[in-house]
Simulated assay, not measured.
Amino acid sequence: MTALQISPEHIWEALAGVPDPEIPVVSITDMGMVRDVQLDGKKATVTFTPTFSGCPALRVIAQSIEDAVKGLGVPEVEVRSTLTPPWTTDWINADARERLRQYGIAPPAPAGEGLITLEAEPTRCPRCGSLNVSMTASFGSTLCKRLYVCGNCKEPFEGFKSV
């Protein structure tokens, strides 16, 4: 395929194969990070919103996007990141939520409308499904997750914060 034969749909398909660098069972499109794909002749512009403004994987994500698009034969790729609108956990698709759960990470509850609350939303254990869980730390392996332990199966797990 040449750059002139490539459509935005081809680019979206390629980006669907780019894993989230911190959670390899979901892609950057599954997580709703890719906001826009534009083609102008031999140049592609991909705009993405990171899940967290201070995400340490920003450069990795941008390079992975560029590599995936160039892998299609597009000679010039511009990768833009934007914080407007801010990413929300509501952008995670349903299939990705289930893969997160199977991977052992409690998917976030819908963020919904309104103000961010300081109280954690009810979290279900991704292993046994129990709501009998306790938060053990406000931050997990990344700032967007919390650490929990299940009171029923006694397993520790991470859960996404709803934003």
Rank of each mutant, 00 (worst) to 15 (best):
P107A: 04
E155S: 14
A96R: 03
Q5Y: 02
Q38D: 12
G112D: 10
T123N: 02
T82D: 14
S138R: 14
I23Q: 05
L15D: 01
C55L: 08
E9Y: 01
E9N: 12
A137Y: 02
D95H: 04
K70W: 09
Q5G: 15
P8K: 13
V163F: 15
V60Q: 12
L115V: 13
F160Q: 07
D67P: 08
E66H: 10
T88C: 11
V60C: 05
Y103H: 15
D30P: 12
V77R: 13
W12E: 02
A68P: 09
A96E: 06
D30G: 10
A137Q: 08
F139S: 12
C153L: 07
T89Q: 04
G112N: 06
T84F: 14
P110W: 00
P108S: 15
A111R: 15
G129D: 04
R127I: 08
V133K: 06
V163G: 11
R59P: 03
V25I: 01
V26C: 06
A120F: 05
T45Y: 06
A109N: 10
V133W: 02
G17D: 12
F48G: 12
S134K: 15
R35A: 11
V163L: 09
E22S: 12
C153M: 06
F139L: 12
D30K: 03
A44L: 05
P21N: 11
T142E: 07
Y103T: 03
G140T: 04
G54K: 14
M1A: 13
L100M: 11
C55N: 13
G129E: 02
L131A: 08
S141L: 03
R127F: 12
L4K: 12
T89C: 05
T89E: 09
L39R: 07
G104Q: 01
F52I: 15
D67S: 14
P107V: 01
Y148L: 12
Q5A: 14
P21A: 10
P126S: 07
Y148S: 10
A16V: 00
D20M: 06
A57W: 00
T84S: 15
V18Q: 03
G140Y: 01
A62Y: 04
I61Q: 02
A44D: 09
S64M: 08
T142W: 11
R80T: 03
N152L: 10
T84W: 13
C55D: 11
F48R: 01
T84Y: 14
P75R: 01
G54I: 08
P86G: 01
S27I: 11
A111T: 14
V77F: 03
D30S: 07
Y103F: 13
C55S: 08
G114C: 04
D30M: 05
R80W: 03
A57E: 02
G129K: 07
E113W: 02
S53M: 06
D95E: 13
M135Y: 03
G151C: 03
L58K: 15
F157G: 05
S27C: 07
D67F: 14
P56F: 03
